[in-house]
């Protein structure tokens, strides 16, 4: 894992003080992470994001004032480059779908272990998402009420690229694997998102899995 010289700027959003305290300790012992702020609800999160410009937001989903999915939408509308990881204790399909449709980069449960959490934060800082397997299962099992049978035709190269995106690789990593330039990968990823009608790489993976284009 190549550590960058500049630490990843993190905002922690949770209405449970005890969770914020735990994350604070966790972030404190990792050199490549920096806690730049905390918020106790969705509204505070939107304000903090505008003021502090974090790289990654760790966000609870069920919160007072503005809940997680709503806050994600508002944050991304102002700062589309921020990566947001939903961190929730609820195994709730609807919540997961709302979060991802709002543009969450990742979706993790609060039983995630340390190593997975740090890996997810590092991936998110590079724009890639991680979705907890249970959430993924739920999303794939029941498609959202949109037209479930839209035909998507992806080229072999696009499918290959999508497969790597699904396994959590960043664009430079994919470029390395496929032995092409990063801008080519960017082009493929852009096309895939376009064809699938996805706003984020994570949503693209969910749609592709649901449509049976890739295995999860």
């Amino acid at each position: 894992m190549n550590r960058e010289a500049v630490p990843i700027r993190i905002l922690v959003v949770d209405d449970h003080k005890v969770v914020r305290n735990g994350l604070r300790t966790f972030i404190a012992v990792h050199d490549d992470l920096e806690l730049i702020g905390e918020a106790g609800n969705g509204e505070e999160a939107v304000e903090q994001c505008a003021a502090l410009q974090p790289t990654v937001v760790l966000m609870d989903m069920k919160m007072p004032v503005i809940d997680g999915p709503e806050a994600i939408k508002l944050i991304l509308a102002q700062n589309p480059e921020i990566s947001i990881i939903a961190l929730t204790s609820f195994d709730d399909e609807v919540l997961a779908r709302r979060a991802l449709e709002s543009g969450a980069t990742g979706y993790l449960f609060k039983d995630v272990d340390e190593d997975d959490l740090i890996a997810a934060i590092r991936l998110a800082s590079q724009g890639s998402g991680v979705i907890a397997p249970e959430a993924m299962q739920a999303l794939v099992r029941r498609p959202s009420n949109e037209d479930s049978s839209y035909r998507v035709e992806l080229t072999d190269r696009e499918l290959e690229t999508l497969g790597h995106v699904a396994s959590g690789l960043t664009n430079p990593q994919i470029a390395e694997r496929l032995m092409v330039s990063v801008s080519t990968v960017n082009f493929h990823v852009h096309n895939v998102l376009d064809k699938l009608g996805a706003k984020t790489r994570t949503e693209a993976v969910v749609i592709a899995a649901r449509e049976g284009l890739i295995d999860v």
Binding site: G22, F26, S89
Partner: peptide, 16 residues
């Protein structure tokens, strides 16, 4: 709401 949050925090702190 309660136990998961506590255990999550406990886990993070213990690991750190």
């Amino acid at each position: 709401d309660v136990i998961t949050q506590l255990l999550f925090s406990i886990n993070l702190i213990a690991g750190s």
